[in-house]
Amino acid sequence: MEVTLDFSKVKAIVEDYTEKVDSLIDSYADKKEQIISLLQDIQAEFNYLPQDVLVKISQKLDIPLSQVFSVATFFRAFSLKPRGRHLVTVCLGTACHVKGGQRLVDKVSRDYGIKPGETTEDMRFTLETVNCLGCCALGPVVVVDGKYQSKVTSDKLNRVLKQYK
């Protein structure tokens, strides 16, 4: 089954959240400089940064949209595209790299047809990489929806990902 993104739906979700978004943005009214924190809060809410929210931030806090956009695109923690139901993050810190982290990225890419930063068509998984999670003793580390998986092997990754539908 082919699933395409329905942006009208996305918009409806954002509208549902209007009040929450408004109060979130308003809570930063006197600390405009903490825009990174605000964007993090927004992303925690929607899983990504919806475009109309960025416009809203710019208007409400009186920050040029160009600056909001530059911050949102500069830091790798932010995504301007909707992400899948499950976020698979493979750590590529040095310790995980020497223990085979890249091979795990290759495996997910192969098995699900997505490169880092991409989402499967059925919106099941988004694949991301991270520079280091500081769990170097447990490498290679893969985080799925915030849950840390340690000493991941090819087989373990199969088992883990199967649990996320």
Partner: peptide
Amino acid sequence: DEGDPGAYQDRS
């Protein structure tokens, strides 16, 4: 902002 991959003492 401990960014060096492979270092996590600041976090700890």
